[in-house]
Design a protein around this nucleic acid. Sequence first.
DNA 1: ATGAAAGCGCTAACAA
DNA 2: TTGTTAGCGCTTTCAT
Lengths: 342, 342
Amino acid sequence: MDSVSHPVTRPPTMEDVAARAGVSRALVSIVFRDQPGASDATRRRVREAAATLGYAPDQRARLLGSKRSQLLGVAFGVDHPFHGELVEALYTAAEAYGFDLALSAVAPTRSEDRAVASLLAYRCAALIILGASMPTALLSKLGTRVPLVVVARNVRSRALDVVRTDDIDGARQATEHLIGLGHRHITHVDGGKAPGAAERRRGYARAMEQAQLGEYQQVLTGGLTEEDGLRAGAQLDPGRSASRRPTAVFAFNDRCALGVMQAAASVGRKVPTDLSVMGYDDSRVAMLPWVNLTTIRQDTAQIAAEAVTRAISRLDGEGPGRPVIVAPQLIRRGSTLPLGRT
Amino acid sequence: MDSVSHPVTRPPTMEDVAARAGVSRALVSIVFRDQPGASDATRRRVREAAATLGYAPDQRARLLGSKRSQLLGVAFGVDHPFHGELVEALYTAAEAYGFDLALSAVAPTRSEDRAVASLLAYRCAALIILGASMPTALLSKLGTRVPLVVVARNVRSRALDVVRTDDIDGARQATEHLIGLGHRHITHVDGGKAPGAAERRRGYARAMEQAQLGEYQQVLTGGLTEEDGLRAGAQLDPGRSASRRPTAVFAFNDRCALGVMQAAASVGRKVPTDLSVMGYDDSRVAMLPWVNLTTIRQDTAQIAAEAVTRAISRLDGEGPGRPVIVAPQLIRRGSTLPLGRT
DNA sequence: ATGAAAGCGCTAACAA
DNA sequence: TTGTTAGCGCTTTCAT
């Protein structure tokens, strides 16, 4: 329990620090930007004065004054855990280059347009949009106004940069993992028209064909949620003799996989002994001990690093580059088992 | 597929708009702030000029220039779904008062201190911290520097405002719901030392005692995650005759409840027929069809509105007020059943 | 190595 | 109703 709040006081300015250190504002500015042009003695004095005053540069003024505003605007989905991870990684990546992040949330009641408009109003040097949902045409138009990096969505436009996971490869890895375990009847519960769904279908199809398993291919319409997986899972068995039932399922993502597992459980099929199940994303739920889901991990750190790198290179005058495709990684856990192993 | 990006052009300034509309900058400023002092004709001309130029005021300059920066800084946990909901609600609430939000994320690799420092650097007029985890003393100190509202955590300090759910009442409602269904052996799997855990224990204890069920009280150490619930759930049965086993469990939150359900399932007890389970939070997972968890909902809209209101009243010169305690609400779903009903 | 001074794009007080 | 003019707290030339 502390004392009653004092009347809030004006924070110290660069002027205050300069006065206390007995130098000009320009010197203080140089010191705080770690630029050459000040003696070590001065630097120390300035730092000390700043410390005792509790000074921190006013970012508003800094942004306004400098031509190159070291500010990256990030639009992210507030209800998407994967975006959360990306945001964290983006902070790390941006920091390494001395850039700051401006966050703008997208939510059911806050459109992507609004989020972007807000970022633009703060004159962010560049924009990074996670899982952009707006039409390609609009993204392209936006890309001509400001350096733009679209993350985790496949956009074909030369007006912007794209950084995303190689979903075809991820799906291929998942499918090949199951094939390697001896499975033949492998069903894919897909993501419908979600971003990345088409790529994952292709990766699955390719792997199956390449292993001469084309005749076993089966794609069920799923989606992004547990409910979608549950619905699709219900169609897994009906009307088939046991010998023609799938022994493994590759689901669009972890949440969908959970639904499939639930569906299996409801008809008495145990995972992984009766059915192997794979997810995608390596979300928190996949790691839970009783879920223990074999899955595909997207490399958030690398995706973030690439996104920041692209954004900054745009600021250095380069045009948009080719899409950056980041390799995913197979995470082996307990939800998949060799065929016939009990 | 669009054309190659043009060399990024300088966004239009207020000066540009003024020139095109044939008025002074001051007039444009007045129009864009919706302030009195401009004729309707002028307003239209200005709006039109701005529209054709695609002008939007530069927030950096606006913030710098105005004495009262209408900016609320929000620190939130990027991996906490509940915070996501609050952020969304905060946008809505802030907007109603013409305030803007500056978001700063807290994550495993980004401390609350850093998040707050960043907000301070942008000279936010007031700070709203969701689920603050820093020591009370630091919060109090911060509260003397800038108007501060702590959300979803019980802090006893007169230097700041607190807005939170009435967890004692929430726990009481949960427990009474179970009692009302005829349960007697009701166990509480608690949240350890998580924010709100102590209050929920009290609410549970009070409800039990008030119903003369004090002898049946049982509190198991749980936590915030599924794993915690799983661990606690494992201790539910051992060494007890069936007649002395709990028939209902009130878990600290939804995730914890999930763990308890899993633990029950692993020893063959079905929910809700063999065991009623309650959660807390009404998170997304609680609504899933096969989870269908009876739970307690926190009123995010009201919490957000109160937080913004408190912050703004502080800016109007008022001191911190008494803690705002928002009432929670029971959400009846399928995970609880009357005792003995099969 | 240091300081003076001109912006950056606004807001706000004051004149006209 | 309008326009003029200082700032806001920095960055950034350009002298010294």
